[in-house]
């Protein structure tokens, strides 16, 4: 009897060989089991069901009409995926992996809403490149409200598209998801780069700019035309200059602990200066500029792109009163 079923199935399959593989597989997946049910009622299959060719023709008539104009289909890919799907499923305690993935959908909807909030807040300067909560302008509360709204919206969209098969809504959902996923991926890469220390963020707060700063040498003579050479690249380096004020280290720029931990050599240098009796007074006559005006010459100025490594190497030479 099993041979009968196998032969009948093969003949039906052959008669439908022109169908797309995935469609045929889906249609015929259950056929052997179904034929076994029929066969158990007695009699040969051909007696009960007619010839395989006629059976195949009748089956074909039940297929949903294929919409025209859709040349590209994902069916071949799906057909390849299905066996893998079934094999992976048991590893996750389900018949198919897809069943498991479907259970995870709400988690992804939440994540999508979370990143959508960053995406919406981005034009408003929504938090730094490693903020964990977006800011609305600079408001944390606004950011939280925005995040909650986006998460709820994303959950709603997920629930609705899962039930409602309206095309416009699904297309909108698909585009929104793709854009958010891309943005979220880039955002994560960015944040990861920042957090893993490839670009350490400054440990001090921005200070209001200091004016009336000059560079002097150890004798108190004004130093002009200073440039700092980066020995690694051979280029002029962007520079940050830290002060060793009388008695204190880098007042207002860095806490003493943080500063000396970061740049021990500079800390030692300042300590040595402090050990000497006071600082020499700058001799401003060298440039002829009135005392108190900003020195035009020194090109030592705060520079956003300055690597921290430039700081310590620059500082020892200027001496007592350089600032950032």
């Amino acid at each position: 009897m099993n041979e009968d079923i196998a032969r009948y199935t093969a003949a039906v399959t052959a008669a439908l060989s022109d169908l797309p593989v995935a469609q045929r597989e889906e249609l015929l997946e259950d056929l052997p089991a179904h034929l076994a049910e029929v066969a158990s009622e007695g009699g040969s299959l051909v007696d009960r069901l007619g010839t395989p060719t006629a059976y195949a023709a009748e089956l074909r008539a039940t297929l949903a009409p294929v919409p025209r104009g859709h040349r590209f289909t994902v069916e071949p890919l799906l057909a390849r995926w299905r066996p893998v799907d079934r094999r992976l499923g048991p590893l996750f305690g389900h018949e198919r992996f897809t069943d498991f993935a479907v259970l995870l959908r709400p988690a992804w909807w939440i994540l999508r809403g979370y990143f959508a909030a960053f995406l919406l807040a981005a034009p408003l300067g929504g938090g730094g490149p490693q903020a964990l909560i977006p800011r609305l302008g600079s408001s944390l509360l606004g950011g939280l409200v925005l995040t909650a709204g986006c998460v709820l919206g994303s959950l709603w969209l997920g629930r609705t598209t899962a039930v409602n098969r309206r095309r416009g809504l699904r297309v909108f959902g698909g585009i929104a998801t793709a854009v958010t996923a891309l943005f979220g991926f880039v955002y994560l890469l960015n944040a990861d780069g920042n957090l893993s220390g490839s670009r350490p963020a400054p440990a001090y707060a921005e200070q209001s700019s200091t004016s009336n700063v000059v560079l002097v040498d150890a004798q108190g003579h004004l130093v002009t035309g200073v440039r700092v050479l980066d020995l690694d690249t051979g280029d002029w380096a962007a520079v940050r200059v830290y002060t060793c004020d009388d008695g204190g280290i880098a007042a207002g720029l860095l806490s003493q602990d943080d500063w000396s931990w970061r740049y021990p050599a500079l800390a030692q240098y300042c300590a040595r200066l402090r050990g000497q009796n006071g600082f020499p007074t700058p001799d401003l006559s060298a440039t002829g500029s009135p005392a108190g005006s900003p020195a035009p010459g020194p090109s030592v100025s705060p520079s956003a792109g300055a690597g921290p490594s430039a700081g310590p190497s620059a500082s020892p030479s200027p001496g007592p009163s350089a600032t950032r």
């Binding site: 009748e58 074909r60 008539a61 039940t62």
Partner: peptide
């Protein structure tokens, strides 16, 4: 009605 019609319809 034929068996194939019912089977195909159920699948669909």
């Amino acid at each position: 009605i034929g068996d194939a019609s019912v089977y195909g319809t159920l699948r669909r």
